Amino acid sequence: MARDGYYTCEDVLAQTTCVMNLLEQNFPESDHVLIFDNAPTHLKRADDSLSAHNMPKGIKHWGVEKSVTAPDGTMAKEKVPMKDGRFADGHPQPFCFPPGHEHAGKFKGMAHILKERGFHDAGKLKAQCKGFKCPEGVTDCCCRRILFGWPDFTDVPTLLETNCQKRGFQVIILPKFHCELSFIEFANRSLRFIDAYRKGLNGKQAAWANKKYRGHRVLPDSIPKELDSNDIA
């Protein structure tokens, strides 16, 4: 667990593994679908997964940072090569030059990667538009924008998806800012209404209290006084 008390992606993966173990043990004949909200811990991808975000345009020694455990048990970062990409026909595209090449081991750079994909004038393009604010509707204005649109860069699975799908579990990650679809929000809302009726509130009062305390699971004991002071009968 992170120092501030929140779950890390590793914690979520471990908990999800326990859930899958229980489901396989108790409901082996069923198909299971695991639903997660749009939290950052649920969206984390492998450290070496494809991303054009920080790629250099030219050939150089470059890698992505990967978290590793140091000999003393602390977490550290080390540079590792990015995973291979995929051409349109599905064949792999290594992003580093092979042994024997004059630039063996070096990262090819966005321009060279795009040339191998058929963009022969990629060397004339900018690495990216200023602030990555590309002209609206334009998809070939800079190297980074072109790569951002390729399927192997857009269809990168999360660690949760990879972990679950390996074991045959389907995964649904809810859209961002769609709390009405979230089973967690629905459950919390239901708990607040249950608590409201338990405290003797009527329908109108329960709806008012539910809206005011929408970030809570239950209502405070002071809710009757708040209803009186706000003339909610």
Rank of each mutant, 00 (worst) to 15 (best):
D4K: 10
C9Y: 03
E10R: 05
V12T: 14
L13N: 11
L13A: 12
L13T: 10
T16E: 14
M20F: 06
H32D: 11
H32R: 15
V33R: 15
F36Y: 15
P40W: 09
H42G: 09
K44N: 07
R45Y: 07
L50H: 04
S51T: 15
G58N: 13
I59R: 08
K60E: 13
H61M: 02
W62G: 02
K77M: 11
M82D: 03
K83T: 05
G85V: 04
A88I: 06
D89L: 06
Q93D: 07
P94W: 03
P98V: 06
P99S: 12
E102P: 07
H103I: 02
K106E: 14
K106W: 03
G109V: 02
A111D: 08
E116H: 01
R117Y: 04
K126N: 12
K130M: 06
G131T: 04
C134E: 08
G137S: 07
C142G: 08
C143M: 08
R145T: 12
R145W: 07
P151D: 13
P151G: 08
T154V: 14
L160D: 05
T162R: 13
G168W: 14
F169N: 10
F177H: 15
C179I: 08
E180T: 10
E185Y: 06
A187C: 07
A187Q: 11
A187N: 13
R192V: 02
I194T: 02
I194D: 01
A196L: 01
K199N: 05
G200C: 12
G200E: 10
N202I: 09
K204P: 03
A207I: 14
A209I: 05
S222L: 07
D231E: 12
